[in-house]
Design a protein around this nucleic acid. Sequence first.
RNA 1: GCGUACUCGCCUCA
Length: 280
Amino acid sequence: ILRYSILVSALCKQGMMEEAEGLFKEMNEKGLSPDRVVYNTLIDGYSCLGNTEKAFTLYQEMERRGIAPNVVTYNVLIKGLCRKHMFQEAINLLKVMDIVGLVPKVVTYNIIINGHVKDGNIEEGFKLFEEMQEKGLAPDIVTYSTLINGLCKEGRLHEAEYCWKEMLDRRIAPNIKVYNTLLDGHCRFGNMQKAFSLQRAMQRDGFKPNIISYNALINGLRREGNMLEAEDLWNRLVDEGLCPDVVTYNLMIDGYLSSGDTHKALQLYEQIENKGLEPT
RNA sequence: GCGUACUCGCCUCA
């Protein structure tokens, strides 16, 4: 059953639900009854694909078979609802949890807050941020990162920095993801000076910029039409042992095309053969 | 063994 659940999880992450269902059937036929983890995994798979109906069908099925949903079950259901912007339904599930005696975790709130952020409604996110604390749940690094991300995406960088400081005041140690979030915020709104100084700060703090950090910076330069500096960064990341990924290629190709450098764009396009595809 | 945050695009929602 452990092997199955690992396999099912891998398939769900790839969105290969037919295959996952196949394994699920196979388990049933072999008389191995899928446990809660397997159900949660499948429900999560469908939630990620936006198939809420199927997710809820499985939820009902597990209840019918006497497998009690746990917090993770509700978390993944809530995630699916948030993805479809069904926030009221998500809140209703919180109530259901309460009725069945399950206590939402920080993760549960983080999921909903992120849903609001992706929906462009950060104010709702802050309301939940308050609410979770009233319930005695302490925001963690993901909570802060989610809120900082929301503020950054709206160009509210001062508030993002304030939020960042509050996080540090609470003795929550930053990680590379939060640094990248803020870094991208500065890049996105044209403050490359700040972005580079933040990059230095993260290094001082012991975090080596990763490919995501570089992509954010390159994207900022690309927006400014500064492909020369973008190339410098490309070289630097390679020097540091990082490998440009599909995103890096897409950004550079797009930048070269915008600046009319079709040749360079084509060169990169050809190099990409060994990798994944490119949109734009 | 399952769930939450960061970069281009896609998908999804309205």
